[in-house]
């Protein structure tokens, strides 16, 4: 029904405008623009990585002579394959340690009351609210004091420091969604507290645990600041740091830099493709079904 100030014709015209705006062509156009905005740098990088050193400077979008030479220069000639190995080792070790520490901690925060429990939890979160740059200098001093400069251990410790609070928070939120009656039922049914966790609570929280694991791996993989602070050589350097090293070169090898960047992105992309369900769950912090 048209309002008092509308004629039926005006109302219909207005309705047509909205129908057009809400049509799937318009919606898809908007989505396409958003995706294009996000993906275009990646595509540009991918295309560049297949170009020759000369080809980079030519004003074409597609590589004129597609080649994998840039990958060879980055990974083999400059030895950046070692950075890839470092990244895998560091991200894996960081993830394992963070999950082993963070899962029980999250469980405790979700279930048990102890003196200053809220204060401790807020403090844990508080450490994540610091701009990490403010901690780089003391961290550098600590790492130097313990002789961990240029070691993978030094970077793993930084990753654990950075992501443990996040995982404690995420896991606590997952555990909170699991009714406490479940633990209690398990204990009445014959479990110790540890068994109740192992046989009942943990299997139920497994999707959340997977989400925490994947997020920690992704974050550790892409961590730059602390890795850059700790490592100056290929013993400990991670792939983001190695990629950054191209910047200082006299004549930048754009193609090789793009190749290194693509190598850095591949694992993240794979994880996102295969585990997107868990990442969404992890970021939104809720378990369903």
């Amino acid at each position: 029904m048209a309002g008092p100030n509308f004629t039926v014709e005006q109302y219909r015209r207005r309705q047509r405008l909205w129908n057009l705006l809400e049509s799937r062509y318009v919606v898809h156009l908007v989505l396409f623009l958003a995706v294009f905005f996000i993906v275009s740098p990646l595509i540009w990088q991918l295309l560049t990585s297949f170009k020759t050193q000369q080809g980079v400077l030519e004003l074409t979008y597609l590589p004129t002579e597609p080649t994998l030479a840039a990958y060879e220069r980055a990974l083999i000639d400059r030895g950046f394959w070692r950075a890839v190995v470092n990244s895998v080792l560091i991200a894996t070790a960081s993830t394992v340690i963070v999950m082993i520490l963070g899962t029980p901690a999250g469980y405790v925060f979700s279930r048990f009351r102890f003196p200053f429990d809220n204060a401790v939890f807020v403090f844990v979160l508080f450490t994540r609210l610091f701009p990490p740059i403010g901690l780089v200098t003391p961290y550098y001093r600590i790492v130097t004091t313990f002789g961990l400069l240029n070691t993978k251990t030094g970077i793993v410790i930084a990753n654990v420091y950075l992501w443990l609070p996040l995982v404690i928070y995420i896991m606590r939120n997952f555990f909170i969604t699991i009714p406490q009656a479940l633990d209690e039922a398990a204990r009445v049914d014959g479990c110790t507290k540890v068994q109740a966790f192992r046989y009942v609570v943990f299997p139920v929280v497994l999707p959340g645990f997977a989400a925490g694991t994947i997020l920690t791996f992704l974050y550790s993989w892409r961590e730059f600041l602390f890795a850059f602070t700790v490592s100056t050589d290929l013993n400990s350097m991670t792939i983001p740091v190695a990629t950054f090293l191209f910047v200082g070169d006299a004549g930048i090898d754009w193609a090789a830099m793009a190749a290194a960047a693509i190598v850095a992105v591949i694992p993240s992309a794979l994880v996102v493709v295969f585990f997107q369900r868990y990442i969404v769950v992890g970021l939104t912090g809720g378990l369903k079904g």
């Binding site: 009656a181 209690e184 039922a185 479990c191 009942v200 139920v204």
Partner: peptide, 20 residues
């Protein structure tokens, strides 16, 4: 004594079935 050492069984308000 722990619940498991008391020879009791309990039915909970929301059943507390193990979903997995």
């Amino acid at each position: 004594r722990e619940p498991r050492e008391r020879d009791i069984a309990m039915v909970f308000q929301n059943y507390a079935l193990y979903p997995h």
